[in-house]
Simulated assay, not measured.
Amino acid sequence: MEKSVTRTLHLLSLLQSHRQWPGPELAERLGVTTRSLRRRIDGLRELGYEIESTPGTGGGYRLTAGNRMPPLLLTDEEAVSVAVGLRIAATTGIADAESTTLSALAKFEQVLPPALRERVNAIGRSVEPQAPRGGPVPAELLGALALACRDHEQIRFAYTAADGARTRRLAEPHSLVSADRKWFLVAWDNDRDGWRTFRVDRVRELTGTRVRTEPRTLPAEDAAEFVAVAAGSVPTRHTARAVLDMPLEEMRAHFGPWAHDAHAVGASRTGWPFGGDSFPLLSTVLVWIPEGVAYRIEADEDYLLYLREQAARMLAAAEASLPPAKDS
């Protein structure tokens, strides 16, 4: 009996890990006959698993979505990943995520073996996700966008820009990206004939068109890089420029997509525009300049005075904590 249950669980694990399995291959992996395999398939169906079977030489078995949630079979590593993901999801800005994900986590952790529960708790104590910015995002909207990205289906939606302007868009979705504590949709904008990023919390009235499109090539290494570059080009309240004693190619190699606006200043120096909505936020860029690279700042006098004041405060704080210099 125990061996039979083990084989059935192994069968479920195989079905969950592959889109479709040929019947003879499944039977061989389980070490059973094809007749015994069919009995185990029927047993899983009685538990609520929707398993399609296709006859013929090219047929086999495939696990599909059903009308109710059947039990899941996860490896130890998968179980830990799911539990940690639920902890993080509670702070990602999804509407009602805190209550729904935490209740799901409570149910999930209740059935975890003690060793796995301790691993989840240890990771949870060490990981502190940042609080989301912007408005909440309905989980249904994220799910619908994710399916549209997967199926390459054109979508229509209403969009509210940062300045309050409201437009209707027809787009070909590519990816969803969580960045800067917000959700972004990367898509080809058919109306503007170009790639765009859309804040998902500003998307309304999403509808599918049932029109499938050929995937387009994104002009970046990946969607996260595209969002990072796009975010860097958004107008900000304050702007400045750092001129680094560093050749342009070397600077680009160090900063990657964050160097998209950098430009050569002679043969050995690079100009790097940067911006922010406040002086403190503007200054965070400077800490990423490599150690030992000299630079100067070109900016409004107010910002330069702010930098001088902050530098003096930091120097005084450091001097107060350093041991007295020894007499030579």
Rank of each mutant, 00 (worst) to 15 (best):
S4K: 14
L15N: 05
Q20I: 09
Q20F: 10
T33H: 09
T34I: 04
R35C: 04
R39A: 14
R45I: 08
R45D: 06
L47G: 07
S53R: 13
T54A: 13
G58Y: 05
G59H: 07
T64A: 15
N67A: 11
V80H: 05
S81H: 09
A83V: 00
L86D: 03
L86Q: 01
R87V: 07
T91E: 15
T91H: 15
I94R: 07
A95P: 00
T101E: 02
S103F: 08
A104G: 11
A106H: 11
F108R: 03
A115G: 06
E118F: 09
E118T: 12
R119K: 15
E128H: 12
G134V: 02
P136N: 03
E140M: 13
R156A: 10
F157N: 00
T160E: 13
A161R: 15
E172L: 12
L176A: 08
S178E: 12
K182H: 14
K182C: 15
D189G: 05
N190G: 04
G194S: 06
T197V: 15
R199N: 05
R199F: 00
V200K: 02
R204V: 11
E214N: 07
P215V: 06
R216M: 08
D222K: 02
A223V: 10
V227T: 05
V227C: 06
A230I: 02
A231D: 14
S233M: 11
T236K: 12
R237V: 11
R237S: 07
A242W: 00
L244K: 00
E249R: 09
R252S: 05
A253M: 10
F255G: 01
G256L: 05
P257G: 03
W258Q: 11
A259E: 03
S268C: 08
S283E: 12
T284E: 02
I289W: 01
P290L: 10
G292I: 10
I297K: 00
E298V: 14
L307R: 07
M314I: 12
L315K: 13
P324Y: 07
